[in-house]
Design a protein around this nucleic acid. Sequence first.
DNA 1: CTGGATTCCTGCTTGC
DNA 2: TGCAAGCAGGAATCCA
Length: 267
Amino acid sequence: MPELPEIETIKRGIVNNVGSKIKSIEVNRLDIIKRQEFELDLLYNETITGVGRRGKYLLLTLGEYFLIFHLGMSGRFYILDADSEDNTPHIHVIIYLDNGNKLIYQDTRRFGGVFLVRDLVKFFAKMGVEPLTDDFTADYLYNITRGRKIPIKSLLLDQRIIAGIGNIYADESLFLAKIRPDKKAGLLTLTEAAALSVAVKEVLTRSIEERGTTFRDFRDGYNKTGNYQKMLKVYGRTNESCLDCGTSLTRRVIGGRASHFCPDCQK
DNA sequence: CTGGATTCCTGCTTGC
DNA sequence: TGCAAGCAGGAATCCA
């Protein structure tokens, strides 16, 4: 499940293609384009002026145009030599560059999509704060949780509030902050909100350092796995021992999502 | 407005 | 052994 650290890892892996021009774009499935504010042909011969990330979205900037990718839960985005053969199933978009590379967008389950955007501000208008910026503070988290009855985990996953956290990092952050995922958001104290905001930053930062988590599907820009799965303390460790206290870890569906936590450490 | 359920999709895992 | 059912989940959408 590509979340913020995985998209950031991909972004860093493809940044060396900035400055090259798009020769052509091959779209194998039209319905993978979820939004189209301009014709794809307009990008031919345009230069990639930047690569970026907002939440879980990967951005290619081409002057005034933006080519945006969301990887859903099984999507991949990687670089190959333009003339190399790639028979991977479910390749939906191939971007041929004038530097001899091609960029591949592949997504088995097609929960992701491609967005051809001109009005970037409007496109991201409803997106929440970036958790690794100074906008994401204890006060912000505390204030936004007031009066909310949903589980704190559901709130962490709400992209309109915080951008980029998915199921894995929500569970890991809550464990680090010693807060149960099913605790009502409105019941968090300021101290807990502070611990959680710090924990989110810590977990995401460490994962980026480890080039993301490969639970099953994730690959970086060079189709290599990440390493953070080795550091996971609760996610996917149902019935294994808590690394802090030894108690058997619990798995429970919260807000429709499989959730993992320590029933002793997390209050 | 809030919160919960539903839907999309494919492939791996589970159980009979 | 083989096959069908179960499960996974980001985010839009719908409904109460």
